[in-house]
Write a protein that binds this DNA or RNA. Structure first.
Lengths: 236, 236
DNA sequence: TGTACATCAGTGAACGCGCGTTCACTGATGTAC
DNA sequence: TGTACATCAGTGAACGCGCGTTCACTGATGTAC
């Protein structure tokens, strides 16, 4: 699918490869700008080529189709938001779990507000006819894994007396085995819900569902996310 | 904006008005079918006209522009999901608050799964360039009001010791005054979060963010939503 | 270091398609007297 | 009940636009000997 040829790092880069990498980046940058202006549906290879002063067919030397360009943008968006959150989270004292959680979610929201169309690209409606290739899976899981990591550092928290259906418990156990060995299923279920709450609340804000109800979005977000953190028993 | 001329109910409907109402409905039905197949971005007046055997300009007698047709579909979608949830909720004993909550959220999810593109239309990415007119506000608030109604019947629940920022408290107080006189701000804040959790979780499922993590979607949804209901102290 | 060949980037024309919207028009339905 | 006029639905042609993708091509860059 997405066959943008990236030079293996450290390999001798001759002039051609360097120019190629630069132009690939330039195409993505222009595409990202147009995405920010008119949304994913309106993203067109021809418009990108026009802005770059190329003929439209030249873009096909870099991206074999429109979908491949979209995939590249999706991967970049996942990586950008993952990097922003990871960077913010790293700055907090490892023992301050609530601080790590709040740093993560605030960085997430800040990135989303700064890049609403890229946010919509990865967390909004799926694009009809577009099938996400394998390449998007790893970048997509960076952020949930960051959150699960914080919860994992918290360790197991005894569950309430709600019982988890057997099938769900199996799913959670599998996830625990590969991503969060220190927590029990109850706590991991809460972590998934927390991740969903984060995306849900930011989407509500960006997509206008809190319009005229909440005015201090940042204050409301912080308040609610502190509540979620408390639910995860992250406070010291 | 949306000037689909609807005959005032009870007014004498002559043949022309009856045919007009029927065709208006037929256009919307066909548009909804095409929406379900190819998504909102691909919805085209010409394709709708083609399927109806009309010439494309004839559709303009019913909807003055593509955006007006979209608005009509959005309003209908909000009303359909609101009606489905309301109907399910009404069947439950008024005193069984948890039952009313679960009936509401299950009806919501069922409708969403049956109409994924309509769901995306109202809860997914906003359509670039499309500005929702006033007409969509009332239908959009049916479902949140239903949820707030359940919480209101629960009555005030003492908050935890987290403090609510002054600005957020003001927003919540205003909402309480017009929609939920019986609850305090703490509880109303939880109700908003519950609404966001519901949409967030269904979006995660429909938009593929739980792919390969959760397999028993229904079991997981019920489990998590019971948790949310418990957080709202709805259980008897 | 120089030459012959292979690789690659970019061009320009073309294919075939679809779209929203406007407009002058015909003919049918409804209304007022 | 019949007639004259006004309203409305649907037609067909047109405007002006943009899109993704393919293909044979030129000329520049890189590679192997």
């Amino acid at each position: 699918m997405h066959s943008e040829r990236v030079s293996t790092p450290g390999a001798p880069q001759n002039a051609r490869a360097r120019v190629r990498a630069e132009l690939t980046k330039e195409i993505k940058d222009v595409a990202r700008r147009q995405l920010a202006e008119s949304g994913a549906a309106a993203l067109s290879l021809r418009a990108v080529a026009r802005e770059l002063g190329m003929v439209s067919s030249a873009v096909y030397r870099y991206f074999p189709s429109r979908d491949d360009l979209l995939t590249a943008l999706i991967v970049d968006a996942y990586e950008a938001v993952g990097a922003a959150a990871t960077k913010a989270e790293k700055r907090v004292n490892r023992k301050d779990l609530m601080g790590r959680w709040m740093a993560t979610v605030r960085a997430f929201r800040t990135w989303a507000i700064a890049h609403p169309q890229e946010y919509a690209l990865i967390f909004g409606s799926p694009i009809p006819g577009y099938k996400a290739p394998q390449d998007t899976i790893d970048p997509a899981s960076r952020l949930p894994l960051l959150i699960i990591g914080i919860v994992n550092d918290r360790g197991a928290v005894p569950g309430a007396d709600r019982l988890i259906p057997r099938s769900v418990r199996a799913d959670l156990r599998a996830l625990s085995a590969q991503a969060a060995p220190e927590v029990n299923e109850e706590q991991l279920g809460r972590a998934i819900m927390a991740w969903s709450q984060l995306v849900g609340l930011v989407s509500f804000e960006l997509f206008g569902h809190l319009h005229n109800v909440i005015h201090d979005y940042k204050g409301h977000f912080d308040f609610q996310m502190q509540g979620v953190g408390a639910g995860l028993v992250l406070a010291q």
